[in-house]
Amino acid sequence: MAEKTRLEIEHTEALGQLARRTANLADAQAQLRGDDRLTDQAVLALIRAFNTEIKETAAFLADAFEFEKKDGAEAPSDLDTAEELGEVHERTTEILGPELVALLRTTDHHGDPALVRLAFQGGMVEYARWMSASWFFEDPEDEQLLADIYQHVRAAQPQAVAGRWRALTHTHVQELIHGAPELSDYFIDAFVNVLLTAGFRSSAAALHAVVGERFADRIAALVRLAIGLNKAVGAEVTACELKVLSAAPGVPFDAETMIDLVDGAPQAGEAVLCTCKLGLSRADKEDGAWTKTTLLKPTVVMQSGLEELLAQGDSTPTKTNSKP
Results as ranks from 00 to 15, higher is better:
residue 2 A to S: 14
residue 6 R to M: 12
residue 16 G to I: 15
residue 18 L to W: 05
residue 20 R to D: 11
residue 21 R to H: 12
residue 30 A to Y: 00
residue 30 A to G: 02
residue 31 Q to S: 00
residue 36 D to S: 09
residue 37 R to F: 05
residue 43 V to N: 04
residue 46 L to D: 06
residue 50 F to I: 15
residue 71 D to C: 07
residue 80 D to A: 12
residue 93 T to N: 00
residue 94 E to Q: 06
residue 102 A to S: 08
residue 102 A to C: 11
residue 107 T to V: 09
residue 112 D to H: 01
residue 115 L to Y: 11
residue 115 L to Q: 09
residue 116 V to N: 04
residue 131 M to A: 14
residue 134 S to H: 02
residue 137 F to M: 10
residue 140 P to Q: 01
residue 140 P to F: 03
residue 146 L to G: 10
residue 156 A to G: 06
residue 165 W to A: 14
residue 171 T to L: 08
residue 175 E to Y: 03
residue 177 I to S: 10
residue 177 I to V: 15
residue 178 H to S: 10
residue 181 P to Y: 08
residue 182 E to T: 14
residue 188 I to H: 01
residue 197 T to D: 02
residue 205 A to T: 08
residue 210 V to K: 13
residue 211 V to N: 06
residue 215 F to G: 07
residue 218 R to W: 02
residue 222 L to I: 15
residue 225 L to K: 13
residue 225 L to C: 12
residue 227 I to S: 04
residue 230 N to T: 04
residue 233 V to E: 01
residue 240 C to P: 01
residue 244 V to I: 15
residue 245 L to I: 14
residue 246 S to K: 13
residue 247 A to I: 06
residue 250 G to P: 08
residue 254 D to E: 13
residue 259 I to Q: 12
residue 265 A to K: 09
residue 271 A to C: 03
residue 272 V to F: 14
residue 283 A to K: 03
residue 286 E to D: 14
residue 294 T to E: 11
residue 298 P to C: 09
residue 301 V to D: 11
residue 302 M to F: 08
residue 308 E to F: 06
residue 324 P to D: 15
